[in-house]
């Protein structure tokens, strides 16, 4: 009986709490989305989707998951409740990464093959603009006020700043080789852009559009060329930035005020993209070669668990 009371209490508490968060992971080679329970960190379900799913993003209300089905040249829209694909959106060829406007009405997708950023109206399901950018566009970041879109082009080595009213490029910022990802700070004051081959993250002032800091990485026992920054996530309070370092198999923890690297957490092989849970107590990394995701406790900066998902996990998004 002594054990029964706490158990009953635990069930009562569980019943009273909000629904557990769900982690959606795209498996690039598995052609599927794996859904992981955010509380128990166990796989709930794996759902087949289009070919070569890479970038994924949730609508602001969490009802829809937008999936770049790169080899199908389309964006699929999944109902996160029923896990069914509802319809597709015209994306242009080979969509790789996407981001949404803050109101969820627009999807911005980078088309790696035709050097365009495609703008799609999610309600009307029509393409409303195509913006010519540099060669091999990849990273996509929308400012929190929705006014600015940053796209990075892998071969041109630039971050293109696009005005979302006019769909015109207003600034081009040269960064290091093969820029992969763009992330705005929560106050939109800065954009952080990772350079995979350059091995650095450029911090760009969103007012002046000039690089103010460059973060580089050095890990004892790892050759410099294995340090390839890709995904970036910054806490809303700008305490930490987490940067996925590709085949270094580490996530760098950076003080987002001083730009000093504080730690390198060993997660899984070929760490690619990152996503926070809604209250930013956990951050999840996709590890392509070890076919798993790792959960990092943000307060303690410890990897708490790795969870096997599908083949070559790539994108990650968390529904609250």
């Amino acid at each position: 009986m002594r054990r029964a009371i706490p158990l009953t209490l635990a069930f009562a508490l569980a019943a009273g709490t909000a629904e557990a968060s769900e982690i959606f992971v795209s498996n690039e080679k598995g052609n599927s989305i794996t859904i992981v329970d955010g509380d128990t960190l166990t796989v709930k379900e794996t759902v087949d989707v289009g070919n070569r799913p890479r970038g994924i993003a949730l609508s602001p209300d969490g009802r829809f998951l937008y999936i770049c089905a790169s080899d199908d040249d389309t964006i699929q829209v999944m109902d996160t409740g029923t896990r069914k694909i509802l319809h597709t959106l015209p994306s242009g060829p080979d969509p790789e990464l996407l981001d949404l406007s803050p109101d969820g009405k627009l999807v911005y997708a980078a088309n790696e093959d035709d050097n365009m950023v495609t703008v799609v109206d999610t309600g009307q399901r029509v393409m409303i603009s195509e913006i010519p950018v540099g060669v091999e566009p990849e990273g996509m970041g929308v400012s929190h006020d929705g006014k600015t879109l940053v796209n990075t082009s892998e071969t041109t080595n630039m971050a293109h700043f696009i005005d979302t009213d006019t769909y015109e490029i207003t600034d081009n910022v040269l960064v290091d080789q093969r820029p992969r990802f763009a992330e705005f700070t929560s106050d939109d004051a800065e954009v952080w852009v990772s350079a995979e081959i350059g091995g650095s993250v450029s911090v760009i002032d969103n007012e002046t559009r000039a690089i103010t800091h460059k973060i580089t990485f050095e890990i004892p026992g790892i050759a410099g060329e294995a340090i390839q920054p890709v995904g970036i996530r910054i806490t809303k309070d700008r305490k930490y930035a987490f940067i996925a370092l590709g085949p270094a198999n580490r996530v760098a923890v950076v003080d987002a005020q001083t730009y000093e690297v504080q730690d390198y957490l060993l997660v899984g092989q070929r760490v690619w993209q990152l996503a926070f849970n809604p209250d930013e107590t956990m951050i999840y990394s996709t590890n392509g070669v070890s076919n798993d995701i790792s959960a990092i406790d943000v307060e303690n900066l410890k990897v708490v668990k790795s969870v096997g998902v599908g083949r070559f996990p790539w994108g990650v998004a968390v529904k609250g």
């Binding site: 026992g221 050759a223 060329e225 085949p247 060993l266």
Partner: peptide
Amino acid sequence: KGTPTDWPCVQVYVPELSLGQVWA
């Protein structure tokens, strides 16, 4: 960088394992 011209694989040419990639 440093990839031999005859390397036939799509995997990046990394001839030696680094301890830090696998052990912390």
